[in-house]
Design a protein around this nucleic acid. Sequence first.
DNA 1: CGAATGATTGACGAATATCAAGCTGCGTGG
DNA 2: CCACGCAGCTTGATATTCGTCAATCATTCG
Lengths: 244, 244
Amino acid sequence: MHYQLKPPVKKWSKTIASPCAACVVREKVFCTVLSDPELQEMAQFTVNVSMPAKQTILNEGDTSALLYNVTDGVLKIFKQLPDGRQQITGFLYPGDFLGIAKSKHYAYSAESITDVRLCRFKNAELENMFKKIPKLETWMLDTASNELIQSQDQLLLLGRKTAVERLCSFLLSISTRASLLGAKANNIHLPMGRESIADYLGLTTETISRTFSKLKKSNVIKSTGKGNIEIANMQAIRNLAIGS
Amino acid sequence: MHYQLKPPVKKWSKTIASPCAACVVREKVFCTVLSDPELQEMAQFTVNVSMPAKQTILNEGDTSALLYNVTDGVLKIFKQLPDGRQQITGFLYPGDFLGIAKSKHYAYSAESITDVRLCRFKNAELENMFKKIPKLETWMLDTASNELIQSQDQLLLLGRKTAVERLCSFLLSISTRASLLGAKANNIHLPMGRESIADYLGLTTETISRTFSKLKKSNVIKSTGKGNIEIANMQAIRNLAIGS
DNA sequence: CGAATGATTGACGAATATCAAGCTGCGTGG
DNA sequence: CCACGCAGCTTGATATTCGTCAATCATTCG
């Protein structure tokens, strides 16, 4: 299989003792609370891993010995029923944490959507760092709280929203996320296919496709090339997302 | 309005410095990690509150100045859409924590289902305790991690399960919870009405009712008085819950 | 260029929602 | 103590949304 990773955004010079010091997502992951010496200690435990698209990264139920920070690319985390029905519970982007802290087994499976780069470390070593550096745990609790809040928005979406409301909510959340990273809120990129969107929103690919068509026909969004969408009417999509 | 709370399970004697020392849910809430002096300090910050059924306890979006531990009764936490559609994101029982740590605003509304008793304290004071007692934060992170895991099960349920699968999953989770507290796994009590179950499972009261009837007719469950259900065939309900 | 994979569209069907009518049980008040 | 009324539950008839099945189209990649 042929695949190509983007080159690292930054090179780290010889004068810097640890690769972590030059990490492109450093300020987005828990490393942001670490001092230089702490970071150096952490660096001993971490391994950088690259994977092509569509690879299984971890399996629900397996012992959660290894945890990751996503440093490049996009992946999905999901749960499955015995007959194959799949629910994607999240898309992870650079800076996101993979594998739930404080759990003996993975609560979900994970698979790369694009080529990805990960920063891997042992669960046990993270636990040790927790003991030494309370700030780490504080950061982790902040992160977990935010995930809980987002998770509840998703429960509302899956339990009570229509197909149009779901898709508009999804596009908005992508837009919001992108604009937090400094991108334009109106032009969004969807690295995942229709099936992944469907499995995230509790719908089918056909319904996603039809709903996209509907939104295009009513001039709320426009296609701007493969996987790229322009939100033409931001207020309309905000209203459509909450059914008002 | 007339209502009646059960009497407190324990009285605390004069020789015990703090009411927390005799708290009936002490070993289920974060107080379990506190030493006696720490507990005494905590006790200064807490107020016991009683509320009748069907009272609003907190509103989504409000500043989260006050947090609670549930000490008696059952309540629901939920989110709403502008047109009134409601998604219940959880039922809280004695020992559960109400209000998300590390958030400026409540992420959900809360309303009592039965008469309830709560242990109330200021968010700011909990934050102070976090700083003094790192174990508290560890406990809270453990709890948040568990909630995240349960939340993902619920995403799978809402996104991908049928009505029968949803109701059986719900009954099973109640059963599991009850048996952890020492009750029989086969006899479960549902303090909430059909509408609450519907709003929790992303269905309507009518569908809940019909699905209950179906399960009764097929001898998977039996009614044993108002709000009481006997699981007659545990294995059947386990299979029905995951569609296999 | 052709095969494969993913996206779109159409026709139809199934699951669940909606609307409507009773039913049940319980608290209240005579 | 019984009858009434109300709220919640159940059941039936019908409507709607979304899923399923199938065909076509588009895009990529060898």
